[in-house]
Computed example of a mutant assay.
Amino acid sequence: MVRTPLTPEERERGERLGRFLREARGGRSMADVAAAAGVSAETLRKIETGRAPTPAFFTVAALAGALGLSMDELAGRCAFVGA
């Protein structure tokens, strides 16, 4: 199966998600947050650095729960800001 290349907007949205999750994590270690969410630290690292710009919904939901964030808040912070 060939994956369709991401648009610049999708890449930017993934970068915004990563920045927001990193900010929300604050002083907590990546390993602690990943364990609380039930994902690997490498998965969280890829999301935070933008290397995984389109993580699965359930991964994002688990991270939001581990960080005490609502999905509405995440969606609002990561929405496309067009010209």
Rank of each mutant, 00 (worst) to 15 (best):
5 P>A: 15
7 T>C: 11
7 T>Y: 08
7 T>W: 06
9 E>M: 12
10 E>T: 08
10 E>H: 12
12 E>A: 14
12 E>D: 12
13 R>D: 13
14 G>H: 04
14 G>K: 05
15 E>S: 08
15 E>W: 11
15 E>K: 15
16 R>Y: 03
16 R>K: 15
18 G>S: 04
19 R>K: 12
19 R>I: 12
20 F>S: 02
24 A>D: 02
26 G>F: 01
26 G>P: 01
28 R>K: 09
28 R>N: 04
29 S>K: 01
29 S>N: 06
31 A>I: 09
31 A>Y: 07
32 D>V: 08
32 D>H: 07
33 V>T: 11
33 V>Q: 03
35 A>I: 11
35 A>C: 06
35 A>E: 15
35 A>P: 02
37 A>C: 09
38 G>A: 10
39 V>T: 10
41 A>L: 01
44 L>F: 05
45 R>S: 15
46 K>F: 12
46 K>Y: 09
46 K>M: 14
48 E>A: 06
49 T>I: 09
52 A>I: 00
60 V>W: 00
60 V>A: 01
60 V>Q: 00
62 A>F: 04
65 G>F: 04
65 G>S: 14
66 A>D: 09
67 L>G: 10
68 G>M: 09
70 S>G: 15
71 M>L: 15
73 E>R: 14
73 E>V: 06
74 L>Q: 07
75 A>R: 15
78 C>I: 13
79 A>Q: 09
79 A>F: 04
80 F>V: 11
80 F>E: 05
81 V>Q: 08
81 V>A: 04
81 V>P: 01
